[in-house]
Design a protein around this nucleic acid. Sequence first.
DNA 1: CACCATGTAATTTTAATAATAACATCTATA
DNA 2: TATAGATGTTATTATTAAAATTACATGGTG
Lengths: 147, 147
Amino acid sequence: MKYSTKLSDTIHLLVFLCLAAGERMTSARIAESVKTNPAYIRQLMSALKRGGLITSDRGQANAALTRDAEQITMLDIYRAIEGKKPLLHMDIHTNPECGVGVNIQLAIGDFYREIQDAAEKKMQEITLRDIIEHYYEKAEIPESQRL
Amino acid sequence: MKYSTKLSDTIHLLVFLCLAAGERMTSARIAESVKTNPAYIRQLMSALKRGGLITSDRGQANAALTRDAEQITMLDIYRAIEGKKPLLHMDIHTNPECGVGVNIQLAIGDFYREIQDAAEKKMQEITLRDIIEHYYEKAEIPESQRL
DNA sequence: CACCATGTAATTTTAATAATAACATCTATA
DNA sequence: TATAGATGTTATTATTAAAATTACATGGTG
């Protein structure tokens, strides 16, 4: 399949929203930057809304964070849009006739869990504010123009 | 796309190989346990060979680890079969006209790198021996029957 | 009312992976 | 030496998760 870029696109969306503070961002405007279509952006925003990270109103462009950017972690975003989807995937099609196969996959699953936990711990340490700050540096936006 | 189960299948393959110490495992036998086809197994083994983790001879079933199971980490296996493929994927299709889009993705990339490092550090701590031991526990193989 | 926005479901297209097929080459053995 | 069976490798097809797209109901604003 394609690789999922949902997390990247959602972070992009959120940063864009923050940078345009005041200015009302439509899904069409955001889609232009992400180079995708408005419906996809709205789907991501819908997931963010379900996850309690943003509010938005039907009929008008009025999305906003429900809390400060430093209170939103990358893990919060990941959970909102990818749910419980893991980074590594077990093979659940092994031969059930083969006891070895089944138990090896179960054993692998426990180690995958550890790796997932390590990754999620790091995700939890990264806030939307951190990403915005780092974006400012990358883009070399002068301090005076930052929010 | 489909989710990649290459890592899971390759670990499966290696454990299977270790458990059958002595007995010569053909790609057909292994494929039966993983419930796939022999050519796929040979492809995985080919990658392991390129990565220097196993040896094998053309014409006869004779695969073997190049070093002890405790000297092979999950990261070694991941590198051999997935190369530099990351766990999280950036969106490289953002609008190049939009400086914001490009720089946000660059900023995201740096944080993804941190997450990748955390996951790889954990992978490096897990050896093939650990997985085999844990399999023995899962399968409740009596100590007397373990290798 | 007219226009433009969101919200959402359904469908189509794209792309990474596993599955499969085909075959050259090597080994062991009868 | 001939044959059976194994690996090594490439090419093709099928599968499947994701993004793209379409469609439209619904709500807000001038």
